[in-house]
Simulated scan of single mutants.
Amino acid sequence: MFISIMVVVFGLAGLIKGLIGLGLPTVSMGLLSLIMSPLQAAALLIIPSMLTNLWQLLAEGRIGFFIRRFWTLLLGIVVGAQWSFLPSLGHGKISELLLGIMLLLYGIYGLVAKDLPNLAAYEKYLSPFVGYLGGALTVATGVIIIPIVPYLQTLHLKRDQLIQALGLSFTASNICLAIFLQQHIVQNSMQFAWACFAVLPAILGMWLGKELRQHLNERRFRQYFFIGLIALGAYMSFPNLGFT
């Protein structure tokens, strides 16, 4: 039964990531947190998320260019993850609430945000601050969504550049999360085995998503994706707020 859940969750998350360049940690953390603690879900997520992010990052080349451009953003992520002002993953209900709120807010943002301002002129000032918030939220919830993704979208990068910039940010945040988990929990061989197993459906789903990208209505798919995030975020948030 658990194998089937893993295949469906990571296959679906990989498919979405292949289609729109993001969604693997968001979808998998959200769904897995329905049946296990965010701490356990994050431990299962590290390896498949890391490998798919590296694939996304390396696919287009020019890594040095993106590192030079976004090095202050990456530094902010590291600092935020190491010296976070937010509760960590180990705080159970608080982490679930934060994760649910992030999913809910990002789903709403994805549906309503249309003409985003161009903040490229302020990039050198905003990147360290945005990176710090992103790193802090990564170790608090296990995913990096807000404010990294909206911020990179306001820089009005080309589609392939945006996907690669997201891959770079996600890779950095995954490394920080892996270090955090190593410092705060004891990994056992079973967790590592399940994490390795999750790579296969994630990679297959991502490959299928990339193949389908040219044949599906991406705009409509994005709408369905964000509506799903709103529903999942609301389901996770409201019980933790006492609305049961």
Rank of each mutant, 00 (worst) to 15 (best):
Y122I: 11
L105A: 14
Y125G: 10
W55A: 09
G107P: 11
V9A: 07
G135D: 00
L119T: 08
W55Q: 05
T141N: 06
L137M: 15
Y122D: 15
A42G: 04
I46T: 06
L99K: 11
L119D: 08
L15C: 04
S49M: 08
I67Q: 03
L119K: 06
L89N: 06
I35S: 12
L104M: 13
A140R: 02
G80L: 07
F129D: 06
G14M: 04
L105T: 11
L44R: 02
K114M: 09
L86M: 07
V78N: 00
W83I: 13
L74P: 00
M102L: 14
A113R: 08
G110F: 06
P48Q: 02
L126N: 06
A42T: 03
M50Q: 10
I63M: 07
L75T: 13
H91A: 13
Y125A: 14
I16V: 12
A43H: 08
L22M: 12
T72Y: 10
L12M: 14
Q56C: 08
G135Y: 00
G76C: 01
I16N: 06
A140Q: 04
I16H: 09
M102A: 13
L75C: 12
V130S: 03
A43E: 13
L34Y: 14
W71F: 14
Q56L: 05
I101A: 15
V27M: 04
L75H: 04
V139R: 02
L99N: 12
T141V: 01
L73H: 01
I144P: 00
L126H: 08
G64K: 10
G76Q: 00
T138W: 00
F66C: 07
L105V: 12
T52Y: 03
L54I: 05
I77Q: 02
